[in-house]
């Protein structure tokens, strides 16, 4: 009997013995089973700034995991060896949610990040781990491309404290050509995250010739400002050639600066540039008086001048979770 998967907007009709497009859910004897449940293939202790997440518990470590498979198929994926491989080709650890939480505690990580591939793909595992982590007093962080249906995502949001969502471009054609997906569900996920009260940061990978035009960048910034607010932290990330997109050069520093200028000119309060060593582009400045609040260097928090989440000079409340 074929089974319709309702997790992501792709809605795969999975035949017996076969997997959906994510390669994770397999129809076994009429049941749709997530074969990577309890089998993370990547586990690392990362700085929370690496997610990128600059306004959530800065300077802390986060226990980061992923399983094989993904709901999207980006031609520029930097983790393509695990995200675009079927699970039987990826070696994994066997770690149940309870064990994962214990490991995070053992390594003094106050949070667990579901990252590298996409928690939307290993949804069941991410959800159960999030529930166990919440019970143990740990925070949960999602790093996702947001290609997931609203109903399951809202369920996951109940246990999520912070999320970084990567909006690839404000173009459905880009999503279809480069990512093998569509734009509308991603934007819906971003809005759902905000509505659910999760601390949200949005990133955008700037790829030369594909989404680096002024019009594309302006459209992205405008959408974020109108739908999420001007205080939403924005991260422009430098593209580095990987996987099926090695024909393009890395994004230039000039282009990254242009993206930042466009966002600043549009009134966005917290704009950062990632994958580039430029301290000024990774520091947090007060939107009220302009003073430097948090100084970072290569994903390490060096100084934090915030006083109870407020600017010590003008007293303006800064968006985020700072404890």
């Amino acid at each position: 009997m074929d089974i319709q998967c309702e997790l992501c907007p792709r809605g795969c009709l999975v035949k017996p013995g076969q997997s959906g497009d994510c390669r994770i859910r397999v129809n076994i004897d009429g049941k749709l089973l997530a074969v990577t449940y309890g089998f993370p293939c990547a586990m690392h202790v990362d700085p929370v700034e690496k997610k990128p997440l600059f306004h959530f518990m800065p300077g802390t470590k986060t226990f980061s995991i992923a399983t094989a498979g993904c709901t999207m198929h980006c031609k520029n994926c930097q983790n393509w060896e695990i995200s675009q491989s079927p699970p039987h080709l990826v070696d994994a650890y066997q770690v149940l949610p309870e064990q994962l939480v214990q490991m995070a505690i053992r390594y003094e990580c106050p949070s667990i990040s579901y990252t590298y591939t996409d928690p939307a793909a290993y949804y069941e595992y991410a959800l159960d781990c999030s529930i166990k982590a919440r019970e143990a007093g740990l925070k949960n962080i999602l790093v996702t491309a947001g290609y997931i249906n609203r109903k399951p995502y809202r369920q996951l949001c109940r246990y999520t404290d912070a999320a970084t969502i990567d909006v690839k471009a404000m173009s459905d054609k880009f999503y279809r050509d480069v990512c093998g997906s569509t734009l509308a569900p991603v934007l819906d996920t971003v809005v759902s995250t905000k509505e659910a009260g999760v601390e949200l940061e949005v990133s955008n990978l700037v790829i030369p010739t594909l989404n680096d035009s002024d019009a594309m960048l302006s459209a992205f910034v405008k959408w974020v400002k109108e739908n999420l607010g001007k205080d939403t932290p924005l991260h422009f990330l430098k593209f580095v050639p990987y996987y099926l997109m090695r024909n393009l050069p890395p994004t230039s520093e000039e282009t990254m600066g242009r993206a930042r200028d466009i966002a600043k000119a549009a009134g966005m309060e917290y704009v950062y540039v990632g994958n580039i060593l430029n301290e000024q582009w990774t520091c947090t400045f007060c939107p009220g008086c302009g003073s430097e609040l948090v100084r970072r260097h290569n994903m390490v928090m060096m100084e934090n001048h915030l006083n109870g989440g407020k600017c010590p000079k003008c007293g303006k409340k800064i968006y985020g979770v700072w404890k």
């Binding site: 074969v35 089998f39 586990m43 700085p47 039987h88 994994a92 770690v95």
Partner: peptide, 20 residues
């Protein structure tokens, strides 16, 4: 029912931290 190979869990390797 993981279809791939299971790696041995090396806790020390996981805890290894980078330049950051």
């Amino acid at each position: 029912f993981y279809p791939g190979k299971i790696k041995r869990l090396d806790l020390k390797a996981i805890a290894k931290q980078g330049e950051w």
